[in-house]
Simulated assay, not measured.
Amino acid sequence: MTGASGGVGRATARAFGARGDRVALLARGREGLAAAADEVQRAGGEALVVTVDMADAKAVDDAAQQVADAFGHIDVWVNNAFAGVFAPFTEITADEFRRVTEVTYLGCVFGTRAALRHMLPRDRGTIVQVGSALAYRGIPLQSAYCGAKHAIQGFNESLRCELLHEKSGVRTTMVQLPAVNTPQFDWVLSRMPGRARPVAPVYQPEVAAKAILHAAAHARRREYWIGGSTAATLLANAVAPGLLDRYLARTGFDAQQDPGEYDGFGNLWTPADGAHGRDFGAHGRFDEEAVSDSPEGWVSRNRGRVGAGLVAGGLGAVVTAGLRRGGRSPSRRK
């Protein structure tokens, strides 16, 4: 599990631990990793802490080898690590944009490559890319992050096609998440006048964790959409992207800020927990408004059942209509 020291990665690691899994925790922040390991073990799993910067390809390869040496093999690899900058594009430096791209996009590429080195010889394994509605729909103030998530989307589709061509037993899938209540909004580098916040509605990280666990076990599906806001955004972007451009231009700046001032630190170059000497955990400051369930996530996970139900319902309606046109209703049949 990359990005395991906080937020979605932390909640997902804990969820894997609750199944009794052996969980390798990959991230930079030592305080967060130590706390995550304790949670995994208390949940019933086994934890292995590996401190690594996902932007360093060799370090990621070494981390994967360390995991394989400790656990014997790698069954599931989840690419979740990311970095971001909240600012207009013209206020993001070249080095900052590069760093976000290296951590968020190339970190996913390096993680996938490292996982494949261990999975392909066994012809089995699952790679889960943690995506976002922003992998399809860019929004203002997050150009570097949106660009990286778009890149992951294209990369994953190419890789999926290649694995299918080779008839490989290795699977890859992507989970597109909504806005999530994580600590990132208090540690992300920001140049906005207000405090960074997710665009409502906001979901708890456990909603994301549940989806990631399901995707890891059902990776034949190419992707999962989690949250009504994700589904609505992706559908609206497919139908009327120009209209959505204008809507986000009008609302997107205020929707990503709360009253208050930025506290002056970011985790782009150094781990947030190291800078503050404390563990941030999985949840951010939005518990009071965050949603703890996603009906759309259930639909995405159970698309086959929903489809069968709709088909059955449609056939029932056709049969009933046909009987009525013939002058009989089902209650009069003998």
Rank of each mutant, 00 (worst) to 15 (best):
A133D: 08
F155M: 10
I139M: 11
G154L: 01
D123W: 03
E157K: 10
L189H: 05
A115N: 07
W187G: 03
G138A: 14
P178V: 04
S143A: 14
N181S: 06
A133G: 11
L159I: 11
G147R: 01
A151V: 03
L189E: 15
Y145W: 08
S190C: 04
L189Y: 04
R195D: 09
Q184M: 14
D186P: 00
G138H: 02
I152K: 02
L116M: 12
A148Q: 02
I139V: 15
G169V: 05
G107E: 02
R113A: 15
L106V: 08
P178Q: 05
V188N: 08
V130R: 02
V130S: 02
G194L: 05
K167D: 14
V175F: 07
R113Y: 11
H165A: 14
R197S: 08
N156A: 14
D123C: 06
A135W: 05
G107R: 01
V202R: 07
Y136I: 11
V130M: 01
C161H: 14
R160V: 08
E166K: 12
L177Q: 08
A114Q: 03
R117H: 10
P205S: 06
L141Q: 14
R113C: 06
V109N: 10
V103D: 11
V175M: 09
A114I: 02
A200T: 13
T104D: 00
V170Y: 01
R99W: 12
R117N: 09
Q204R: 08
P205R: 05
A151R: 00
Q142N: 12
R195M: 12
P121M: 04
T182Y: 06
Q153F: 07
L159C: 09
T173Y: 06
E162T: 14
A115G: 13
L189V: 13
Y145F: 13
G125F: 07
R117M: 08
H118F: 15
L141T: 15
C146V: 06
M174S: 14
D123Y: 04
K149T: 07
S158A: 13
Q153H: 14
P183W: 04
R195H: 07
R99I: 10
R113H: 14
H150T: 05
C161D: 15
W187H: 07
E102G: 00
I127V: 15
Q176F: 13
F110K: 00
Y203C: 01
N156V: 12
R99G: 09
M192A: 15
F110L: 02
R99F: 07
I152D: 03
Q204L: 08
V128T: 03
G107S: 05
Q184C: 10
P178L: 04
P178N: 02
